[in-house]
């Protein structure tokens, strides 16, 4: 554990808190992509299968929180707040993301075991799971401030893992190329969003695309 990883995980927790807080206080999930949320649940379930055979207090607790909160968000979106979700603006074709992640996972896992292939699938899928959400923001041309805070916190989480990987490589020669490549791609996908977030939202203006 190092400060970058801890900060990254805290940003991940904060992003989930912001999302659930936004939905429960406004009693609405407008502006949130159901497809991205469904992909995240798929990411957590396929990556954290090792809950069944590995226990570490910090990691296991976080894994349960991520799976549980993700399932809760999907419950809110399909149950109580379903009328506020507009599928007509949530139209990204996720089959290509799932298919691409599945192909990469089958071709280049660390080991050809079901758990390793699913872990690799989850790493690639996470790197692109935000795309339906970003696509939705782009289609509507604007986003609520709270939604932009959510996307920022979620992006900051994986961005902070990058200095964590550098630190771990330098201090213990830890080297996880799949996580690192996918994590860099994930951060790059957020970079346009980060730029607009910094230049607009943090200066008190509305998030609107130029």
């Amino acid at each position: 554990m190092n400060i970058f990883r801890l900060a990254g995980d805290l940003f991940h927790l904060i992003s989930i808190f912001i999302l659930i807080h936004k939905m429960t206080t406004s009693k609405s999930c407008s502006g949130i992509s159901f497809k991205s949320q469904a992909l995240y649940l798929l990411v957590y379930v396929t990556r954290y299968l090792d809950l069944f055979w590995t226990f570490a207090l910090y990691n296991s607790t976080m894994k349960i929180i991520f799976i549980g909160s993700s399932a809760y968000v999907l419950h809110l979106m399909t149950g109580p707040f379903k009328p506020t979700h507009d599928p007509n603006i949530d139209t990204f074709k996720v089959r290509y993301l799932i298919g691409g992640a599945a192909i990469l996972a089958l071709l280049f896992p660390y080991k050809w075991t079901p758990a390793e292939v699913l872990w690799t699938f989850s790493i690639w899928l996470e790197s692109v799971a935000i795309l339906p959400q970003l696509f939705m923001v782009q289609r509507t041309g604007a986003a609520e401030t709270i939604t932009t805070h959510y996307i920022f916190a979620l992006g900051a989480y994986r961005a902070l893992y990058i200095p964590n990987w550098i630190y771990r490589y330098l201090t213990s020669t830890f080297w996880d190329p799949l996580s690192i490549i996918a994590g860099v791609i994930q951060t790059v996908l957020y970079s346009d969003f980060f730029y607009i977030y910094y230049t607009k939202v943090l200066q008190g203006r509305k998030f609107e695309l130029p």
Binding site: M62, F66, Y110, D176, S179
Partner: peptide, 10 residues
């Protein structure tokens, strides 16, 4: 040593 399949991150 490579620890690439330890998966000790989230």
């Amino acid at each position: 040593a490579a620890e690439s399949t330890k998966h000790d991150e989230l």
